[in-house]
Amino acid sequence: MRIKKSVAVSENGFVFDSSTGDSFNLNSIGREIVELMKNGSEQSEITQKIVERYEVEPAIFEQNLMDFQSMLKQFNLMEE
């Protein structure tokens, strides 16, 4: 699963999917994660990078990440 090619993310976290016309907002950590995903980072890599930079337990972050990615899927922003 990765982020669709048609999905563009701006610096302010505005997301526009040119294949569907849908738009979304990301908070800044959400934007970082989407960028990492777009660059092909694996789950473990994302977790490692975030945990290094932010004050958060890996277990909690992994839960949040799972939920976040389920929303990306729900919003049809991912593809096989």
Binding site: N25, L26, S28, I29, E32, N64, F68, L72, F75
Partner: peptide, 8 residues
């Protein structure tokens, strides 16, 4: 830290 969020 703040949980990642996406809103439509």
């Amino acid at each position: 830290y703040e949980r990642p969020i996406i809103n439509r």
